[in-house]
Simulated scan of single mutants.
Amino acid sequence: MRAIVVSATGGPEVLDYVDDHPDPEVNPGEVLVDVAASGVNFIDIYHRMGRYPLSLPFIPGEEGAGTVVAVGEDVHDVAVGDTVAWASVPRSYASRVAVPASKLLPVPEGVAPEAAAAITLQGLTAHYLTHSTYEVKAGDDVLVHAAAGGMGLLLTQIAKLRGARVIGTVSTEEKETLARQAGADEVLRYRNFADAVRKLTGSGVHVVYDGVGAATFDESIASLRPRGMMALYGQASGPVPPVDPQILARNGSLFLTRPSLNAYIATRDELVWRASEIYGWVADGRIRVHISNRYPLAEAARAHSDLESRRTTGKVLLIP
């Protein structure tokens, strides 16, 4: 099979393309899938850099979709030929992936495999952030950073489905257009955004969804109303330095959380609930999947470089 292999951590150049890698073994409880597309996410960059260490060598990637070609022992309700997707499954930058059946998600009619690969991990994340970490309600003011990125576009659309007013931050006019097309009511640049948020809302927003990290953290805190929630779900600009909890008291008894997906899909029922809602919104047109870039698997290094440098909008896919 074709695969990307990382033998040493570092920059995008450590992503080596191998066209004769052995197929994965299919153990009991697993399913072998021919991959139609693999999603590229910042967690893959963190693994490549060694920020979240993995044993070397490894095949990066945690998300994809494709067609079942073999079913292992003790697997039920999955058949050869089914279209499936997954998230938080390692070794997904490959043309074939062995996926635990417990992690498989059936892709319904009306959702193309590429769309499923593009939305599963980020869609599950956007769902838990808006439904569980902070349950967005009609009339809430919500601040979404990187509103033209894959996560930002989904967070904006879901928050609008729930009746919120969405304030997005972006870096360019082109990205502002994308954020507004997704439903953002107001779009700001990153410079002094906290002052602008205060002028728009009076008392601040109910929740900040921040996947940027170090570069936006302080102003995100300053953008919250009393008892507001800071959901720091990523660190694209780097990790946030140690925080004095007193800043939460001084800014109005704020809440701060650093959530991660696995804690919110801890059971099969929770995983299927979130995915079913996301896929349903895609199938009926209430959420649009924006795929900005498709790269051949062999160009994974370019995909990482473009994502890190913010040359992409929406979702980035690798096609084996």
Rank of each mutant, 00 (worst) to 15 (best):
G61N: 09
Y46D: 00
G149I: 07
I319D: 04
S92P: 03
E62T: 14
H290I: 11
R311A: 12
G314V: 13
T130G: 01
I265S: 01
P241D: 14
V6F: 04
G280M: 08
G238I: 11
N41L: 00
Y52Q: 02
E173R: 12
G72K: 08
P320L: 07
V208L: 08
Y264V: 09
G81R: 03
S203Q: 12
V31W: 02
N262Y: 08
S220Q: 13
S220T: 10
S7Y: 12
A3H: 03
Q246Y: 04
P53M: 00
G72C: 04
G11Q: 05
V84W: 01
L32S: 05
S253M: 11
E308I: 10
E173W: 00
A179M: 06
R225G: 14
S88H: 03
R310N: 14
T9F: 00
G285K: 05
N251T: 05
N251S: 14
L153I: 14
Y17C: 04
I167N: 03
H127R: 08
L104P: 03
W281T: 02
P239W: 01
T9W: 01
L248K: 06
I291L: 09
A283Y: 05
A249F: 11
H145S: 06
R189W: 02
L317M: 10
A147G: 12
G11K: 08
A196L: 13
E219A: 13
A214Q: 15
G149M: 11
I4K: 10
G285Y: 10
P24L: 09
I4F: 12
R250P: 00
L254W: 02
G228A: 04
E114S: 08
V14L: 04
L178V: 13
F255P: 00
A85I: 11
S38K: 04
A101N: 10
D306Y: 03
F217N: 12
I221R: 12
V18Q: 10
T172V: 05
V26C: 10
L154Y: 13
E174C: 01
Y46S: 00
L124C: 10
L248A: 06
A159T: 08
